[in-house]
Nucleic acid binder design. Structure first.
Lengths: 236, 236
DNA sequence: TACGGCGTGTGGTCCGACCACACAAGATAG
DNA sequence: CTATCTTGTGTGGTCGGACCACACGCCGTA
């Protein structure tokens, strides 16, 4: 086993044994190096990995935000991973759209009606109704659009599904931005999107899961069809 | 931006520009440190992250396997990530089962009939028919069981879905192992699993996607119901 | 021609040093 | 006595240099 993996192996043990939990602070790098019998450089490599995986968060200085603290954020793991894999053209945009469709339709169908995520989604829709005051173009609209869809995914109460959609957000924002640039009439398109968003949320709140899932599917598919995503290359 | 992130940022640029691709070899750590104007320690932290994300693979010595080489393996990213997040009890087993159900049902419905993954799946089924010669108990059976399900997921031709199932494999193997220990009659259960596997694969090959999806759903759900997974805690 | 030792470049690990930072306790000025 | 400033301490962040094990390919040797 490579030396830096000692850190994650140790952390996994501590977590399983209940000696550490989310929110706990890890020993300092110097102290951990001594405890584990490895160098500080290796401890740091191990910590970097944990950080990339969204398991810990490192902060300098002193105080509550300082030190290396255990978090539970699986989304950051995929966020950066997806960026790289998309960049390497190993991950076609088509697959991302497909996966998004899959996750969101499922989430819409299984959404928990009392989820606070739905309230967040509703707030986002209200904000999207206000004309983009200062910012130009569809920038902040699409930002909230992506967040709205992530909120829907989280409403199903499945951490994994929520995390996966959360990490897709970055990729989604990237190409929706690109696609809207080619649209001839953004005004009417955004109006339609607004309307469809309302319909989706209403269906979920009304408990009509299957119908909501269908609406989500149409919503996403139509947008990509109109934008002609199928003609574009990942690096476009 | 933290220094070690210079590496992933640089790599992303190189990939996007087409100067690097999967299979390419990165410059040596020492040379890269000089090029990027950072220390070798930071380069190493950066490559450790890339390695954890499944973007590169590092090998010592010389020859074709040596050096840091770009791979496209998103699955390894989640594999370790899931282990840690499950250990931290941040990720309930219920969510994993649910996600598995979601991914596999979709994959069964969208499987590409000519996929080589289906041939692999068929071979695995044949191997599972042979009574576990030397190994005791359901060990290698469950191993192949998990691989069979991953193969089905890959048959849909979606890299992301395949990668997600691949990284779930570790977690799945962990608790199926645990659950089968409590089963009163493993012999009859494994017979039923074998039969269901055949039926699923046959439905896919016959092009009856929807029916295959239903079979998959029943297959997974029944197993977990019988095993009483709902009564178990993540750390069980 | 076949074999064996050696050079070279790779990542892997370690050490020791210094930096920027953020808080807390003490010293200081009002 | 209070408010402010200074200093101390511990944190992660970065750096340069050193040595190791490894695996290959070259080259001298038998």
């Amino acid at each position: 086993m490579r030396t830096h993996q000692v850190v994650s192996a140790w952390l996994e043990q501590e977590l399983a044994a209940g000696r550490l939990a989310i929110g706990s602070r890890l020993p300092g790098e110097r102290s951990m190096a001594e405890q584990l019998g490895i160098s500080r450089a290796s401890v740091r490599e191990g910590t970097r990995v944990l950080e990339a995986l969204g398991v810990v968060r490192a902060g300098v200085g002193s105080g509550p935000q300082a030190g290396t603290i255990i978090t539970g954020n699986p989304a950051v793991a995929l966020d950066s991973a997806l960026r790289l894999h998309v960049a390497s053209a190993h991950l076609p945009v088509k697959d991302i759209v497909e996966t998004r469709l899959l996750l969101e339709a499922w989430a819409a169908e299984h959404a928990w009606r009392g989820s606070p995520a739905l309230e967040r989604a509703a707030r986002l829709l209200d904000e999207m109704d206000e004309p983009d005051g200062d910012d130009a173009g569809p920038g902040s609209f699409l930002e909230r659009d992506a967040l709205f869809h992530v909120a829907l995914a989280e409403a199903a109460g499945n951490v994994l599904v929520g995390a996966m959609m959360g990490s897709l957000r970055g990729s989604i924002a990237a190409y929706t931005q690109r696609l809207t640039a080619d649209l001839p009439d953004w005004g009417s398109t955004s109006d339609r999107l607004r309307h469809e968003h309302r319909a989706i949320l209403a269906a979920i709140v009304a408990g009509e899961g299957r119908r909501a899932a269908g609406l989500v599917r149409d919503h996403i598919e139509r947008f990509y069809r109109e934008s002609g995503v199928h003609d574009q290359h990942p690096e476009g």
